[in-house]
Design a protein around this nucleic acid. Sequence first.
DNA 1: CATGAATGAGAGTTCATTCAT
DNA 2: GATGAATGAACTCTCATTCAT
Lengths: 220, 220, 220, 220
Amino acid sequence: MGIKERKEQEKSEMRVRILKTAMKLFLDKGFDNITIRNIAEKIEYSPATIYLYFMNKDEILYALRKEGFEKLHELQKTSLNIKDPLKRLLKHGEAYILFALENPEYYDLMFMMRGHVKQIKELDYYDIGLESYELLKNNVKDCMAQGLFPRTNVDIAAFSLWSCVHGMASLIIRGRGIMFPEEQVNNIIKGALNFMLKVNHDKNWDINNKSTNLKPELNT
Amino acid sequence: MGIKERKEQEKSEMRVRILKTAMKLFLDKGFDNITIRNIAEKIEYSPATIYLYFMNKDEILYALRKEGFEKLHELQKTSLNIKDPLKRLLKHGEAYILFALENPEYYDLMFMMRGHVKQIKELDYYDIGLESYELLKNNVKDCMAQGLFPRTNVDIAAFSLWSCVHGMASLIIRGRGIMFPEEQVNNIIKGALNFMLKVNHDKNWDINNKSTNLKPELNT
Amino acid sequence: MGIKERKEQEKSEMRVRILKTAMKLFLDKGFDNITIRNIAEKIEYSPATIYLYFMNKDEILYALRKEGFEKLHELQKTSLNIKDPLKRLLKHGEAYILFALENPEYYDLMFMMRGHVKQIKELDYYDIGLESYELLKNNVKDCMAQGLFPRTNVDIAAFSLWSCVHGMASLIIRGRGIMFPEEQVNNIIKGALNFMLKVNHDKNWDINNKSTNLKPELNT
Amino acid sequence: MGIKERKEQEKSEMRVRILKTAMKLFLDKGFDNITIRNIAEKIEYSPATIYLYFMNKDEILYALRKEGFEKLHELQKTSLNIKDPLKRLLKHGEAYILFALENPEYYDLMFMMRGHVKQIKELDYYDIGLESYELLKNNVKDCMAQGLFPRTNVDIAAFSLWSCVHGMASLIIRGRGIMFPEEQVNNIIKGALNFMLKVNHDKNWDINNKSTNLKPELNT
DNA sequence: CATGAATGAGAGTTCATTCAT
DNA sequence: GATGAATGAACTCTCATTCAT
């Protein structure tokens, strides 16, 4: 069975290779402006080869989105063991924005792109996305229950919070920080997070490290 | 010079016609999925005619964006005569979100689309956008000056507020309300606006009226 | 209006040119083996140009089939002024086989090809084909009425007669005369027609003339 | 040599399997629309395996045609022991049409398809086809010799008769009975056969039984 | 014997753009 | 000013076929 497994793994490795390459290209130019040929050339295979691993171009998109939702969900689950609901909520928000800033390509495909063909609800990653949203809602509920938060409709509150972090993430990803002096962008991001989340406590994540210094890689 | 002026005006009327038509089409399918031919057919001219008024497809985009920024700026200036800085800020925010929800096509082109070719800073509407942003900053500054607002970096505060409204607008425009029961979407939008803007006073705009009941026209 | 008409005519001339060229190519290799590019190259235009005159490849097929049915119908109507029903029937048969042998490309598309996409009954040339068939049936009916023909079900008789001529035409078009010495093929065709139609009277058409000496142009 | 023989037989079994599967697929969609992959999937082998048994796709076609000609020849030989030449000829015709209606896939490949690459005369089944034709000619000759048939050129008479049955078979196989009411198609076929073959004697084959009720399986 | 992986060649089709009239 | 006609350059996708293992 060793042989069979190795083959399977190679197959899977190729898929990953295609996905990674596609992702990189999408970041630069957007899904619609990347062709199967572009991807094929980058991995030095023929275009036809791509079709051995993905039924069509959209399947690549769906696969990446699924990956994205899984990654995000994984990140967000790390907040689950925090007792204090407000801190948990903050951690949840941080995880979200961190994911967006570190994986702008994924974030774009997941939350910023126009729909492609299939209805969102039919896609198999819809459930994972929903789970992430449930996590958020539970946090909000807990906060309300403990009086740490004004009592209102949970969905409304959750959607509002989501909007705040999504707003920041998407403005930055689309390069709408340009009115700030280049060197201050990161500080502004950090500050805005604080401002929005009213966070005064110490952070265990630092927006200034290399991987999150997104400015130069972003395009308008 | 009468003739020249009339000519110019006719030229300008045609431009407007093209822009309006293009805009309507973009709303449905997005800029990338509308062809010059689509626009030409709609206005019952030949594709070649479009090129008499616009150098290329991108120029249409730029013109529309400029229009958008002008409209938005106009809307936002209406808040200038409000004395109370906090109320002025709220009015400013309302105007923004109202613009987004009533003109999702413009909003998409202005704040959600990927950049096309030219760098944003090179574009002639950059200044107008900046002016709008200055308006926001002034409001924030005034609020801080009068102690209505915690004193922090103005840019950070402004960017944060912008993020909140942009987040909501863009999630709604991309149809990410799907986890809510269809009939509650509008309530959630209204509720979230209240939640974020902490608005308790009477509103002179109503999210439930026809033109802002956006749900059915939006696509994911 | 002179200009407009000339333009229209040119447009129509181009359509004809494309159809003629396509037809020639189909004769050699069959519809499925001819590409839009092949046609474009032959007429020394770009492939995209073809699409200015035909929506897609199938439309070319349909147009040609329609032409074919019209041509055939025209030919068959010439028999209408013959009084004697049997002679009229013979003339009808001759016209049919003559059409097939002189226009093997049309005949192939009309009666020998596999169906392409649209259901035959939906196509606008279905009616013309039906009319031709009605002509045949009327002839058969008249023959029966005058006792020149055994009385049976008209459809059965008509279908039988059609089968005979179609059989010959299609065998010849597919080159299944190869077991006969090359130089006798035409005689055999003529003889078979006589044999099948029991024709002893003088003919006003001659299978030996150039245009009907089909052998060298046919492929297997 | 036992081993070698067994190997050969296995090889042959696989060939048969491929051919049978290919045949079934061709019936539905036609040779040109079936891919090597389609066949491979159906037999649950890889496409490459097909190439161990056939040089290329065309070889499958040739093999099937050969099979077809052999089957037909076999069927037609059954008429040989009939003394009366006219009855023998009728039996011969019946066998032919029965073969066509029961094996439309074979019949299509053998007599209706365009040639693929090789000239018919070069193919090894050409001889068998010719033998079948000789059988027909001998029958015709015998009929003439016994005065049961008008004396004319034997080739002409034979080709004529062939044309009649081929015409019917091919029109039916291509679904050109559409102008008749659905439920009468079988009657028409039967009637036309009678009409053409002038058969009044009892039949031992029945066009109405399941295997020959071809209508629903045929495509246009 | 069997195949997984790969591909060259090419299919139909689309579209922003040009230009002579 | 307007356009009919044309196209180059791409696009996504398919398939018969090969070959190392």
